[in-house]
Design a protein around this nucleic acid. Structure first.
Lengths: 175, 175
DNA sequence: ACTGAAGGTTCGGTCACCGAACCAAGGTGT
DNA sequence: ACACCTTGGTTCGGTGACCGAACCTTCAGT
């Protein structure tokens, strides 16, 4: 966990995973990256995370091969953080966690996740019941649900109100 | 998260879930509970967790309705902590997290999870390919794999070397 | 009365997290 | 040329979570 003490005595893949993504904020950064957030400032305003913590998480996730830092313009030099295959592979975990949270602690449907090809809402394991396949992350269409605040304070939240595919980068909005 | 600051600005089931199970050690306690650990001392020696932290986690998980504290003998009064339905529902999350951890950071197979009825190893979503059904947690048989240390230092680890079903309580071994 | 096991609580130290302030590089406006 | 803005950070002091170790309580057995 890169915390004071690791889970040294644990011989367990779950503990290994938590060492990497178990710290505070880490999974929410990955979630935002799945939603298409790529830039430091967008993570910052959407998560409400302290700047220093965000910088540390981005660096750690990059070091672990979950995010990749990529120059997207030369002048002025700007980098974005994009999920690697290893990071994308966290989608089933986040999906399971989100379903559990909604079922047991939240009532309202905040977002729908559909198979982009046919519009069918995904099953609990990210599968499309109609097509009978597990839907690849980039073919998942995310739409706002009835429980979602229609007027979020932060601009990133507003951009995320529009239906879009996972991983598809945020359209940078005009200031 | 019951941490200094919660994920207040997040309107998201994942954030809600992490508020409940996102703290250090929490998911490992739930994992152990799935493995059949029920008693304070067994959690303690198996996790190597500080006593105060364990007490806090058990209390918080009980308050959230994930564990249930249950008197299992009157004299001396002894309580055990058992997963509720809400706690058992975390199995898919832990399964996904464990698979991710093994695939991306650990090599060896530490434990097998099989459908007790037919012996088939579970698929990524806890389904039995042979029977074509999602296997209920209590029908999952856990067996040690080749990567697991055959002589763990702690007694609970030794008991967990024996194949057993999830949720089935540990056989208390003689001192 | 003494000992031991189970299940905690207390305590002082360290380290992660917090918000706010500051910094730097590269445009942009005037 | 100069001020100012945007982006992406780093630094800093304060708070609180986590750490190991020690201590405490209840009850059983002898």
């Amino acid at each position: 966990m890169a915390l004071g003490k690791d889970y040294a005595t644990q011989e367990c893949s779950i503990a290994r995973a938590l060492e990497v993504v178990g710290e505070r904020w880490t999974l929410l950064v990955v979630r935002d990256a799945l939603y298409g957030v790529r830039r430091y400032n967008d993570f910052l305003v959407h998560l409400g995370i302290p700047r220093a913590v965000l910088a540390a998480r981005l660096q750690a996730l990059t070091a672990e091969g979950i995010l990749e830092k990529r120059r997207y313009q030369q002048s002025p030099p700007r980098d974005e953080y994009v999920l690697t295959e290893r990071g994308i592979a966290l989608w089933p975990t986040l999906r399971a966690l989100g379903l559990w949270g909604r079922r047991h602690f939240g009532e309202a449907q905040l977002r729908y996740f559909r198979h982009a090809a046919c519009g069918t809402e995904l099953g609990p394991y990210g599968e499309c019941a109609l097509c009978g396949t597990v839907v690849p992350v980039e073919d998942v269409l995310m739409e706002p649900g009835p429980g979602l605040d229609p007027h979020p304070a932060d601009p990133v939240g507003r951009v995320l109100l529009k239906p879009k595919r996972l991983l598809e980068p945020l359209e940078t909005e005009p200031a």
